[in-house]
């Protein structure tokens, strides 16, 4: 095994290459942190902030496991640079529960068994939150299209659709 001397190490946050300071408000908490220019938002959240609820499921922007809200819109944080989020608001799964009260979408996913392994779930829920904010009473077809950027391998999507309908009803949509 060829190796260089192993230095004292810090945490696993991305290092090396040009850096800059970013100001990003995550779940209402402002952060000012030095990042590499190339740091992906998902790694900023997971590795730098240690907020591991946002997941990574692919390399090619197809799975949506990394979905977060950027200024209230769902985006794939694996394909957003942390520097692109500078000065903006990010909301992640960790920010859904407030004051000990679950978000209706979280309630819906539990009540309707909208998750199995839970890996797609944070991303799926963030997309759902944004959908319901825009369309409080979506049809099944609208829900299926809205979550079409989020892959789930476990549930066959049936109960995810029901979970979102459940949340819509609880929030006063879907009469």
């Amino acid at each position: 095994m060829a190796s260089t001397a192993i230095p004292r190490l810090t945490a696993g946050a991305p290092m090396g290459g040009p850096t800059r300071m970013v100001h990003i408000t995550v779940n209402d908490v402002p952060f000012a942190i030095e990042v590499q220019d190339r740091t992906l938002l998902v790694h900023f959240l997971r590795d730098t902030l240690g907020m591991t609820g946002t997941h990574i499921g692919c390399d090619t922007t197809h799975c949506g496991a990394c979905t977060v809200l950027l200024d209230d819109r769902p985006v794939k944080s694996c394909t957003v640079l942390a520097v692109q989020a500078d000065g903006r608001k990010v909301r992640t799964v960790e920010g859904l529960e407030s004051g000990g009260k679950l978000h209706p979408v979280q309630e819906g996913f539990t009540a309707e068994h909208g998750l199995q392994c839970g890996f797609c779930t944070p991303g799926m829920m963030m997309t759902s939150v944004a959908l319901l904010a825009k369309n409080p009473n979506p049809t099944e077809d609208e829900i299926r299209h809205a979550i079409s950027g989020n892959l789930c391998r476990c549930t066959g999507y049936m109960n995810i659709v029901k979970a979102i309908q459940h949340a819509a009803k609880a929030s006063g949509g879907a009469k």
Binding site: A11, G12, H55, T110, G118, F119
Partner: peptide, 27 residues
């Protein structure tokens, strides 16, 4: 019965392998 494991998953508190951070950990 509603699933017991959901409580952590819906809060983003699942603990998957890539979530594990140890001091001095290499990649």
């Amino acid at each position: 019965l509603a699933r017991k494991e959901d409580a952590r998953f819906i809060r983003g508190k699942g603990n998957y392998v890539d979530d594990i951070q140890l001091p001095g950990m290499l990649f």
